[in-house]
């Protein structure tokens, strides 16, 4: 990350090299998941894991090379805000899916109960 030149005001700007590295990595991390799904060579579960993994890595790549995220800019406050947001996002996503999955699995009447009600 020494390639980042930081202005007096503390905002980091990327260099041309940063943007090109980020772009190259993003192209690979986009093309591979699309190819995996469109060609369908692997089984579904492995493909899904690869696709989600590539997305996570690409999000980090964008954060570092395009948004110039680091732990120092603005006295570390941008990074703190990002970590806090990431925690909320994980709670929102995981919590919603978890609770709603169990509601769906446990609360929906099955066929015998529906027949008993009728």
């Amino acid at each position: 990350m020494s390639a980042h030149n930081t202005h007096a005001s503390g905002e980091a700007h990327g260099t041309r090299r940063d943007y090109l590295i980020g772009f190259g990595l993003s192209v690979v991390l986009t093309a591979v998941p699309f190819a995996l799904v469109m060609l369908g060579q692997l089984d579904k579960q492995t493909t899904a894991l690869f696709v989600m993994g590539a997305a996570l890595v690409q999000i980090v790549v964008h954060m570092v090379y395009f948004l110039h995220m680091n732990t120092r800019s603005e006295g570390g406050w941008t990074f703190m805000a990002l970590v806090f947001t990431a925690v909320l996002v994980v709670i929102t996503l995981a919590g919603s899916l978890w609770v709603m999955h169990h509601l769906n699995a446990n609360m929906m009447p099955d066929m015998q109960q529906i027949q008993a009600m009728g």
Partner: peptide, 20 residues
């Protein structure tokens, strides 16, 4: 750039995993 980050989530979770 933020919108591009959100789009990563969209094409992964909506389109790719949806088709899968």
């Amino acid at each position: 750039h933020f919108l591009d980050v959100v789009w990563i989530g969209v094409f992964t979770f909506v389109y790719l995993l949806g088709v899968l």
